[in-house]
Design a protein around this nucleic acid. Structure first.
Length: 419
RNA sequence: GGGGGAAUGUCCCGAGCGGCAAAGGGGGCGGACUGUAAAUCCGCUGGCUAAGCCUUCGCAGGUUCGAGUCCUGCUUCCCCCA
């Protein structure tokens, strides 16, 4: 990227915070944003009941778009999810039922209001759903009005298609159409709501640029494309995956405590980068935190965890998670806010094996895994390493409040509660 | 339409003479060292209260004391020809 000095607040913020990977026309977009005339959208798939960290990143771009005096649009992919985006995937995902997509859509929507202000004002965010126009399209009309602008030769050279072909993986016609639909979305919203900017992850570049082209061919105003870098940790792993699966944004899928822990465990080399991307902390404060070295960098990680969690789940949830972490890791005392699973006194009386107890607590997936962990000294009951895989969980393990602490490794703790 | 290949431990890649719970990687998990970090080293990586039993190699049958391995049919993918 050549040195570019933005005049608009929007691009200045995105640039200094490290959001920008590729842009179709920085100068053009800059002058638009400087006048508060940028109307930008990000599309969200409804493939799961919750969004994940990558989506959090793009919604932060919408956040800054709004803060800098422009208008954000969140587009629910109610229509496009029925087709399925092949970008970055080796194989066709099973087609999702309409009911499932609807349920996911409803479950996803909530998080945006955490970082965006919706309403009718000029810079208020609006939410659209491409099912509203895509489902009404007529095949022949679509081919004549839109399809003729697409070159198959060029489509075959796009990453999302080419990589499949090179790896000799199948790509069905329905997926091949995905980029046409996404392009159409962009052009359609340009005409109906004046949209002129689409943002997304770097894997969306091909789809977005196709939309820019389509807009030009269909005679819309100038459209712009902007993507974020692919989120990776300093050691090169894809971000947002943990042993338990993805880092979800919905609290019922991934608790605020786990979310807080996720950030607390950031690698040293990533702390500053993540502070810029996932918090709204002023750059000056981030610069101060960046000065911390050695073990002190843990202070910066705590700030990161606090701010990111507060942004998504609220300040109270962030404080509770921080307090639980402090008690658990620094004092070694029992903190009530740890994940809790209840057991009945009957179960204990009947003789609940320790192995089964760890399975019940959701710490390990099977008793076999529990056995293995015991062998390598990974399981603890009330902070004492478990050595006997035949032991039972006795009433003596529970404290006066009827709580026993089960742990695996240093970081995973679950409370078993009687009652 | 014709011909030739391929599908393996449900995270991925990938070896596998009729004796196989199945080589080797990657990833992941645990331990040691640390700072709830990284790097490094070690161990583990089908299920079951487990010297035993049960279920796995695309699907369904068959041959055999015994099948991931041989035979038949089917499904899906790849390549060549038309």
């Amino acid at each position: 990227m050549t040195a570019f000095t933005p005049k608009s607040d929007f691009l200045r913020i995105l640039q200094e915070r490290g959001f920008i990977h590729q842009c179709s026309d920085l100068e053009g977009l800059d002058s638009l944003a400087a006048r508060g005339k940028a109307i930008g959208y990000v599309g969200y798939d409804c493939t799961a009941p919750s969004l994940h960290i990558g989506n959090f990143l793009t919604s932060m771009m919408l956040h800054w778009l709004q803060v800098s005096g422009n208008k954000p649009i969140t587009l629910m992919g109610g229509g496009t999810t029925m087709v399925g985006d092949p970008s970055g995937k080796d194989e066709t995902r099973a087609l999702r039922s309409v009911a499932e997509i609807e349920a996911n859509k409803a479950s996803i929507k909530g998080v945006f209001s955490k970082v965006l202000r919706y309403g009718d004002g000029p810079t208020d965010a609006i939410m659209l759903d491409n099912a509203d126009w895509l489902l009404k399209l007529n095949w022949i009309e679509m081919l004549r009005d839109v399809g003729r602008h697409f070159s198959v030769n060029r489509m075959l050279s796009m990453d999302s298609v080419r990589l499949r072909l090179e790896r000799e993986h199948e790509m069905s016609f329905i997926e091949f159409n995905y980029m046409v639909l996404q392009s159409y979305d962009f052009a359609h919203m340009a005409k109906t709501v004046g949209c002129n900017l689409q943002m997304g992850g770097s894997d969306q570049w091909g789809n977005i640029v196709n939309g820019v082209d389509l807009g030009r061919r269909m005679g819309t105003h100038q459209l712009y494309a902007l993507t974020t870098p692919l989120l990776t940790t300093a050691s090169g792993a894809k971000m947002g995956k943990t042993a338990q699966g993805a880092v979800w944004l919905n609290a019922d899928a991934f608790s605020p405590y786990d979310f807080w822990q996720y950030w607390r465990n950031t690698e040293d080399a990533d702390v500053v980068k993540f502070l810029k991307l996932f918090t709204t902390l002023p750059m000056g404060e981030i610069a101060k935190l960046a000065e911390l070295g050695g073990a002190d960098i843990n202070q910066a990680k705590i700030v990161l965890a606090n701010e990111a969690t507060a942004l998504l789940h609220g300040r109270a949830a962030a404080d509770a998670a921080a307090e639980t972490a402090r008690k658990t890791f620094e004092e070694g005392t029992l903190a009530g806010d740890l994940p809790t699973v209840s057991v009945t006194e009957g179960e204990i009386a009947a003789g609940l094996g320790l192995l089964s107890a760890f399975v019940k607590a959701g710490i390990v997936p099977s008793t076999g895994e529990a056995r293995r962990q015991i062998k390598s000294g990974g399981l603890k009951l009330n902070d004492v390493t478990v050595t006997d895989d035949r032991a039972n969980l006795t009433p003596a393990a529970f404290n006066s409040d009827g709580v026993a602490k089960l742990s695996m490794g240093k970081k995973k703790h679950v409370l078993l509660k009687l009652g």
